[in-house]
Amino acid sequence: MKITLKIWRQRDCQSKGEFKEYHLDKVSKDMSFLEMLDTLNIKLIKQGDLPVEFDHDCREGICGQCGVMINGIAHGPLKNTTTCQLHMRSFNDGDTIYVEPFKASAFPIVRDLKVNRSALDHIITSGGYVSVDTGQAPEANSIPVTFEQAEAAFDAAACIGCGACVASCKNSSAALFTSAKISHLAQLPQGDKETSTRVVSMVNQMEEEGFGHCTNTEACEVECPEGISVLNIARMNYEYNRSRLMKK
């Protein structure tokens, strides 16, 4: 099939970017979206142009490194699907596809569709862990965790850190990402002990990175490839308020 692409090209975060138009003639329905971009890049390189830079790695939807806005939607039209798992059969012959990077001031553009998401790492660094050194762990079965608890914790822990929640949010809030980690650890006895200090440092770090506030539009949950629940955000708020109110 024939596809027209309008791809955001931008040299670095200081330069101005713009859409550039490209045409591809022999796009197969079985190609993944990124393979379609690979094909375009080979064409560009052979023409003597610079290829489109985009982020990707595992190409099976788990590493979280890929992620672009496709026709104005994070990771494209399919629900619960990362960019790498999106295939061209989701498009029609003759379609025009707009491709833009995730945009937020906490995600400076590196080049073209590549953005720097280390702000998300910084949030984890500020407290998204259990403080246990190697060797300190007690016998694994010494603290039972019920099936339901473990499943609920897993649902939050499944976050792949792609940043689609930030990109989909009208306020560029990282509340879903941050709360998923807080909620994952707060639901396990191993992690809950530090919840009240953890939530305060992670929320503060989220502020410092320049993310916006959450207004509960719930767009993040809809566009999240892992379907992380917005109730995690409520839990983060609860833990935060509790921690603040109980402060000695």
Binding site: M69, G72, A104, N171, G210, E218, V222
Partner: peptide, 26 residues
């Protein structure tokens, strides 16, 4: 704060499909 967090806006934006119009326009 929102404006600061958003930075440059999208040139082609259809994020609205995922939420209700009134929640976005409080």
């Amino acid at each position: 704060k929102k404006r600061r967090a958003n930075g440059t806006s999208y040139s082609y934006d259809r994020r609205g499909r995922a939420s209700s119009w009134y929640s976005r326009n409080m």
